[in-house]
Amino acid sequence: MKLAFILFKYFPYGGLQRDFLRIALECQSRGHDIVVYTMDWQGEKPAGFVIHQIKPKALAAHKRDKCFHQALINHIEQNAVDCVIGFNKMPGLDIYYAADACYEDKARLQRSKLYRLMYRYKHFSAFERGVFSPESATHILLIAPAQQALFEQYYHTPPERFHILPPGISRDRCAPENAAEIRQQLREEFNIAASDKFVLMVGSGFRTKGLDRALNAIAALPDQLKQSIHFMVIGQDNAKPFWRLARKLGIEKQLSVLSGRDDIPRFLLGADLLIHPAYHENTGTVLLEAAVAGLPVLTTDVCGYAHYIDEADIGCVVQSPFKQDDLNKQLLAMLSDQEAYQQRHENGLQFAKHADIYSMPQQASTLIEQLASQRGK
C-alpha cells in the first residue's frame, strides 16, 4: 500500500517525531510505500521515503497549519494514497496517532473565557473536532488510555474508533552487560566524581517539562548536598530564561544544558536520578527509558506513564495538585537514601525484562494495515 504520513515538523529528538519514524519504518519494512507531508524536516531522510515539504508563508501558527492542511489535501487528491495517517490533529485523516492531550480540556480548564474568543482557539478546536467528532471517520491510535474519557466527554466520539497501543520503548535503552563501564566513562568525560550526584532531565520543551520546578528543587537542597550536584538538561529549546533562574537561585555552577543528541542511553546509565516534574505530559516516554536503564525516576502524576514508575517502585511520583515543597522533599529523600536507590535500580532492571513496553511500532503498523484494508473495501 501507499501510506501518507502527516506531521507539522520533524526533528530527530522529539517524542512524537521518534514515534512517527519508528512506525513509518516498520510499515516500510512490511513492503509499503511511505510518503511524508511536513512543513519542515530536520536531520537525515530515510532511504525510500518520499518527503514533501510544504512551507506556508503565514506568520501565525494557526494560519500556517491551516495553509499546510489545505495544500496537502489538494496534493493527496491529485496523488491518491491508500491511507492518511496524521501525527497532528486535523480534519480528513483516516488514522490519527494521539500523541497530544485533549486540547479542548486544556482550553477550558487552563485558559480564560477571553482565550476561547480568539481565532487561535477556534482554529485548534476545529481541527481537534475534525478528528474526534461523531461525524468524523478517523480512527484514533491512543497511547494514553486516560485521554479517551476526555475526548468522549467533549466530542462524544464512538468508543469503537479508539485503539489502545502499548508503549514503544526502544530496546537500546535497556542496560547492557557493560553498563557499569559505560557509566564510569561518561562520568569521567563530564568530570563527575563517583561520590557526586548526577541528576538528569531529558526532553524538548523546557517549560512544559517543568525545568523551573527542577531548578527550584535543587536550590532547596541542603548546602553540602547541593555542592555535589551535577544537573544536566538535554533537549531542544531556548535555555536563556532557565539560566537566568539558575543564576537567581545561586545554582548556575550545578547546571549544564546540552542540545538534543543521539546517545541518550549513555546518560541514562551515567546518572543517579531522572527528574521530570512536567506540568502536563500525555505519556512521558523518557520515564520508561530511564526505568529500563535502571535509573530511578522522580516525576509528576500528570504524566501518562507515571503509573508504571509507581506500580513497579522505580521512583517517586508527586501527586496533584502539585506543590513545590513535595518535589523538594522527594528529591532530597531520593538523593540521600542509597539503599532505596539500589532497590529501585534493581526494580527497573526487572521491569525491563517482563513489561510489555516495546511493541508499539509493530502493533501500530498492524492496525494501520487493518484499517487501511477496511477503508479500501
Results as ranks from 00 to 15, higher is better:
residue 126 A to Y: 09
residue 130 G to C: 02
residue 158 P to S: 07
residue 208 T to V: 13
residue 172 D to V: 14
residue 147 Q to T: 14
residue 129 R to E: 10
residue 215 L to I: 08
residue 129 R to Q: 11
residue 210 G to V: 02
residue 227 Q to D: 12
residue 213 R to P: 04
residue 139 H to S: 12
residue 235 G to S: 07
residue 139 H to A: 09
residue 196 D to E: 00
residue 230 H to D: 02
residue 119 Y to T: 13
residue 180 A to M: 08
residue 170 S to G: 12
residue 216 N to K: 15
residue 202 V to F: 08
residue 161 R to D: 11
residue 147 Q to D: 09
residue 179 A to L: 12
residue 190 F to K: 10
residue 176 P to D: 09
residue 211 L to I: 12
residue 173 R to Q: 10
residue 171 R to V: 11
residue 180 A to R: 13
residue 211 L to C: 05
residue 167 P to V: 08
residue 164 I to A: 12
residue 175 A to F: 10
residue 184 Q to W: 08
residue 154 Y to R: 12
residue 176 P to K: 13
residue 184 Q to F: 05
residue 142 L to G: 02
residue 174 C to V: 12
residue 170 S to A: 14
residue 221 L to G: 01
residue 158 P to R: 12
residue 240 K to P: 01
residue 141 L to Q: 09
residue 236 Q to A: 12
residue 146 A to M: 08
residue 149 A to L: 07
residue 238 N to Q: 13
residue 242 F to G: 05
residue 120 R to Q: 14
residue 209 K to C: 04
residue 161 R to E: 08
residue 231 F to H: 00
residue 154 Y to H: 15
residue 219 A to E: 03
residue 138 T to I: 10
residue 222 P to C: 01
residue 221 L to E: 03
residue 244 R to T: 12
residue 207 R to F: 14
residue 191 N to P: 00
residue 208 T to S: 10
residue 188 E to C: 08
residue 199 V to F: 07
residue 172 D to L: 11
residue 152 E to Q: 11
residue 121 Y to H: 15
residue 175 A to W: 06
residue 139 H to N: 13
residue 159 P to V: 10
residue 157 T to N: 02
residue 161 R to T: 08
residue 235 G to V: 11
residue 189 E to C: 06
residue 187 R to H: 03
residue 189 E to R: 14
residue 237 D to N: 04
residue 231 F to M: 00
residue 209 K to F: 06
residue 232 M to S: 08
residue 243 W to T: 04
residue 172 D to W: 11
residue 202 V to R: 07
residue 140 I to D: 04
residue 139 H to D: 14
residue 195 S to Y: 00
residue 223 D to C: 03
